[in-house]
């Protein structure tokens, strides 16, 4: 058994959040830079601003986007780890509270009264028990301009992958200019209603542009990306070739009666940090 005080996890969450909100991931920046070469007019202007914005944020250590998001925290907890100290969820919230205290926006509120919780807690926490004695903490600040455009559909096996592909493309088309394109499209296929949505969110934690190791899924990612970029929505909806930077799908087994498909939209501002304790 390895003993870890959850205070260490609070520190880790605070430091990951502080880093994540100040920069685009390397994969995201590279994808935007590539897209910039293919666009012109207002679309190119938008991508130039996005790249300059990333440099400014890093140089001045201020958030790359004012929507510093809901704090999505994923923890892979080795089953040989013995946690001491405060309850894990409290430690995670403590880390979020600390990171968001000064120059990050507090964007979490009660859905009914709309009263702000004032410290960006609670975090959206997922814990998975895995083998070993390590703890992996991932931090994804998720903005809601794109989250709002996400969708889930319970398709039938008869509709099959053709129906799934159409649904993904339709979701991006309906979102139009609203989710801050060029987007990254996280897709979950299979599982249950909730598991499918979680798979879509996990897909967003992959490096931008990475392929699913399963060849038929990678093929699907490529096909959907091509169709989405044929829509012409373009950067910020100004028209152009780049509506999506990437389509990233995760597939999990489902029930013989069903075909759940979830589309989790991510704006061009992909922020993500991970650390192994």
């Amino acid at each position: 058994m390895r003993t870890i005080d959850t205070r260490q996890i609070a520190d880790c969450v605070a430091s990951l959040a502080a880093k994540a909100c100040l920069r685009l991931t390397d994969g995201c920046r590279a994808a935007v830079a590539r897209a910039r070469e293919t666009e012109e007019g207002a679309a190119r202007f938008a991508l130039d601003v996005i790249l300059e914005n990333d440099e400014t944020a890093q140089a001045e250590q201020i958030p790359v986007c004012q929507d510093t998001g809901v704090a999505c925290v994923f923890i892979e907890l080795g089953q040989e780890v013995y946690l001491t100290g405060m309850v894990l969820a409290d430690a995670v919230n403590e880390g979020v509270r600390r990171a968001y205290r000064d120059i990050f926006r507090k964007s979490v509120c009660d859905p009914i009264t709309r009263v702000n919780t004032g410290d960006n807690t609670p975090a959206h926490l997922h814990v998975e028990i895995v083998a070993g004695d390590r703890v992996t903490v991932s931090f994804l600040p998720k903005g809601f301009g794109s989250e709002n455009m996400s969708a889930l559909k319970m398709l039938t096996p008869a509709e099959g992958m053709r129906g799934a592909l159409d649904f993904i493309v339709e979701t991006v088309k309906n979102a139009g200019s609203r989710p801050c394109p060029p987007v990254v499209v996280g897709v979950g296929i299979g599982g249950t209603f909730d598991g499918c949505a979680l798979a879509a969110k996990k897909a967003l934690m992959r490096p931008v542009g990475s392929q699913n190791p399963r060849e038929e899924v990678a093929r699907l990612e490529r096909e959907v990306l091509e169709r989405i970029n044929g829509l012409g929505i373009g950067p910020q909806g100004f028209g152009g070739k780049t509506t999506a930077l990437a389509v990233q799908a995760e597939v999990i087994p489902t029930h013989i009666a069903g075909l759940p498909v979830a589309v989790n939209m991510q704006c061009h501002c992909v922020r993500f940090e991970k650390e192994v304790l």
Binding site: N53, A57, E60, Q61, I62, P63, V64, C65, Q66, D67, T68, D102, I103, F104, R105, S107, G145, N148, R178, P179, C180
Partner: peptide
């Protein structure tokens, strides 16, 4: 249409891009 981040010292405002 914007909801800015709190201002760091020495700046008029924090990050302040547009919202949807």
């Amino acid at each position: 249409y914007a909801g800015p981040c709190p201002a760091p010292e020495g700046m008029a405002t924090g990050s302040c891009g547009p919202t949807t």
